[in-house]
Design a protein around this nucleic acid. Sequence first.
DNA 1: GTGTTATGGATTTTT
DNA 2: TCCATAACAC
Length: 879
Amino acid sequence: MMNGFDDIPFFDEEPTARPAKPDPAPERPQAGAIPSGLAARAMAARQASAPRPTYLDGLNPEQLRAVETLDGPVLVLAGAGTGKTRVLTTRIAHILATGRAFPSQILAVTFTNKAAREMRERITHLAGEAVEGMPWLGTFHSIGVKFLRRHAELVSLRSDFSILDTDDVIRLLKQLIQAEGLDDKRWPARQFAQMIDGWKNKGLDPNQIPEGDARAFGNGKGRELYTAYQNRLIGLNACDFGDLLQHPIRILKNNPDILADYQNRFRYILVDEYQDTNTAQYMWLRLLAQRPKGKNPSPTHPHKGAGLDAPSTATGRNTRLADDDFPGSDPQVSSLPLVGRVGEGSSSHVNICCVGDDDQAIYGWRGADIDNILRFEKDFPGATVIRLECNYRSTAHILGASGHLIAHNEGRLGKTLFTERADPDDEKVQVHASWDSEEEARGIGEEIEQLQRQKHPLNNMAILVRASFQMREFEDRFVTLGLNYRVIGGPRFYERQEIRDAMAYFRLVCQPADDLAFERIINTPKRGLGDTTVRHLHDYARARDIPMLAAAGDMVETEELKPKARKSLYDVVVNFKRWSQLLESTPHTELAEQILEESGYTDMWKADKSAEAPGRLDNLKELIRSMEQFESMRGFLEHVSLVMDAEQNENMDAVSIMTLHSAKGLEFDTVFLPGWEEGLFPHQRALDEGGRNGLEEERRLAYVGLTRAKKRLHIWFVSNRRIHGLWQSTIPSRFLDELPEDHVEVAEVEQSYGGYGRNQYGQSRFDKQEPFSSGYSSPGWQRAQANKTDATRNNWGNRSGHQVERIGYGEAGPTGRVIQGELVAKSKVDTPSAFSVGDRVFHIKFGNGNIAGIEGNKLTIDFDRAGQKRVLDGFVEKV
DNA sequence: GTGTTATGGATTTTT
DNA sequence: TCCATAACAC
C-alpha cells in the first residue's frame, strides 16, 4: 500500500558539512537610533557584556534550554501546565531578537485559530511590533490557503478558489453518489465525506487509497467517486479543508524549485501541539524542513547580513515586514550592514522545533497520529529532547491524581510532573456519587453556589463533560437556579442557517461559478424554483460545462421553463448581474445589505412568525457588522471559511460548560467532571472501535480533564443514566479505580436531596460512604466493585446473558488492582426477550411495575409509582 | 412546490 | 427521548 510519502527523502540524506559562516563582530547601535521594544532588547542581548534580555527572565532551566536551543531539531515535551506557550513564544522572540531570522522566515503552525491568535498576541507583547510582519504564523489550514493562493494554477485552480465547508461537501457528494446511480440512503454522503477526509488526512489521493477502502463504499465505486469528487472540485474552482494541505504537498513535491524556495525561506519552523498532527501535516512539515537540494543558494547565509533588526535599527524602516520581503528579494534589505550573528543557526540539521505532549493526544479519531511525536527522534536524528515537567498550574493532589491515572497507559514518552507548591490546605480530589444525572446536576449546582457564596468568580469554574448530551441537564438546572453559564463549543455562529444562506449569496456574487452556493439560495426565499427547475439547470450546466448561474442566464432566454419559473429565474439572474457589477464600486457592507434586501432574504425572516426569526435577523445584522473589519467582501469570505468561530461575551461572570475535548489548553480554579461511568467515560464506542488504543485515548482525555484544574477537582458518577431515552444502571468508571488513594477522597453524600427513588426503593450504593482515606473499603465502594464484575454482563449495549469478551491487561496496574473487563465487546445478537407482557418486574430505579410492551430487548413498563418508562430488559428482574 | 408525519440514529471536532 | 432528515400527502 502506498503511503503517499515514499518519495520524501529523510533529513539525513545530505550529511555534507555546511560551509563555515561569517561571524561578524556586532556593531554598536548608533545613539538615538534605538527603537523601542524588541529591537532595543535585541541589541542589548547582542552585547557580550550586557545582561541577558529581560524576556528570558523567570524561565526555569528547562524552559530556558527550550528557548535557547535554536539549532537543529528540538522536541519539547511539555506536560500540562508547564508553560508550553510561553516557551514557544519566547523562543520566537529570541530568534527575532538575536537577529537569526526575519519574521517572514519563521514558520509557526498551530491547529486552531485561537492558538494562533494567542501566539501572535504574546509574541507582540514580548517583541513589539516587528512580529506583525510574521506572515507565516497561523493554522495549518490558513498557511495552506496562503500558499495555495499563490500557486493555485499548479493544481488547476484559480487563485480565487473558494473553500467548501462540510455541509457543501456533503451536498456535493450526494449529487455525485446519485449521479453514479447509487442509492444515497444505502451509501450516505456524510459517511463518504468522512472517508475522504480520512484519506486526505493520510495524504492519499484517489490513486493511492487502499483497494479495500475503495471497495468498501458505493458498491466498490469508492475510488471512482473520490476521483469524480476531486474533478468536480476543480470544476467548481473549490477546495475542501483537506485540499488546503493536499494541494500544497503535491505542489511542493512536483516543483523542486518552489520547494527549495520555501525551504530556504523558512529558517526556523515551530509546531504547536505536535501530538495532534496527522500524516498529511507531517508530510508537509517534513518537506519544508528538509535541507534544500541541489543548487543550494548558500543556505548558510541566504540573506547576508540580514539580522532582524538591521533594517529597523538602522533606518527605522521595515518594522513591519511585508509578506514578500524575505531577505535577498529586497535589495534594500540585503545591502544593509551586517549586524546580527547571522548564520549561526546553521548546523547539519534543520531548525524545527515541535512542542507537544503525548499524554494529551486526544484526536486520534480525526486522523491525528500519535506516532508522529513518539517517532520524533527517529525522524529527526540528533534531535534534542527537552522535557518540561515543572507544573505551575495545579495542586500536588491534582497532579498526583492525574499522574497516577496516565501512568496506566503504555507507549508513552514518559514524563512525571511535579510542583513546588505544597499547601497543606489544598483539598484532595473529590469523588462524588449520585443516584442519577438529575441529582448530579443538582449536586454540582449546589457546589457552585457554595463557592459563589465564598466569592469565587463563576468564570473560574468549569464543567467538563464527555459527550454534549450531558450538557442539557446542567443547563436546565442552572436556568432554574438562575446561575449564569456559558456553553463553549456547540453550534457556531457561522454554521447557523441564516448566516450560511447570506454567505451563499455573497459567495455567488464573488464567485459566479460557485454552484453549491447557487443551489443553496436559488429557492431561498421561496421563488417557485424547486427541484425540477434546479435539475433542468443542473443538466444544462453539466452538458455544457458551465456554472449553473450562467446556465440560468442562458435558460431564461429559451422556452424550456414554464413562464412562472422563467420570470422568477430571470429576476435572480438580473439581480446577480447587478450585484456583481457593484462589487468593485460599492462599499462591501453596503452591498451586502443591499443583496439581502433586494433578494427578499431579510423579508423572508421578517415575515416568519416563529420564535427564532427575530434572533436570526439580529444575527444577519451582526454578520454585516462583522464585515466592517474587512477590506472587501472577498477578504471577509476567506476569513469566515477559515475562522468559523465568533467570540463570546466574556464580560459576563459565568460557569463554563464544555466537552473535555474543547477544554484542552484551558485552565480553571475549580473543575467538575461529571459522568465518570463505564460506557460513557470511557465511551463504549471508543472501546468498540478503538480497542486498547481507544481506551488509552479515553484515558488521555481523562488526563486532560484532570489537569485543567488548578485548585479544586470534583469528579462525579451516577448509578442510573438515561441514554437514548432508556434508563440504564451504570457502574463507576474504571478510571476512578486508577486514581491514587492518597490524593483522592470520596465526598460525603448530602442527604438533603431526598431525590425520588432514592430512599423509597432502597439505598443508593453510596449512602453510607466513607472517605477513601480508610482505603477503598467502604461498604458502598465494595458493593460497587462487586456490582462491577456483575454488571459487566449487563453493561451498555450488552443484552442480558450475552457473551462477554474480556481482554484484560492481566497484570495488576499501579493500584495493585487487577483491571478486569478491560474491554467489553458489544453484543450484536438480539436474543428474544425472556419477558412477556403482563409480567411483574422490579427495576432498581423505578421499583415494581408491570410490563406493558416489548420491542426486542426494550421493555415498556408501567411502574407503580414512577409511571410508564422504557428500560432495557437487562435492568429488571421478575418478581 | 410546500406542509406534515414517519423513520432512524444519537461521541469527541478543527479547519 | 429527541433531533434531523426523508418520504408522503395536499
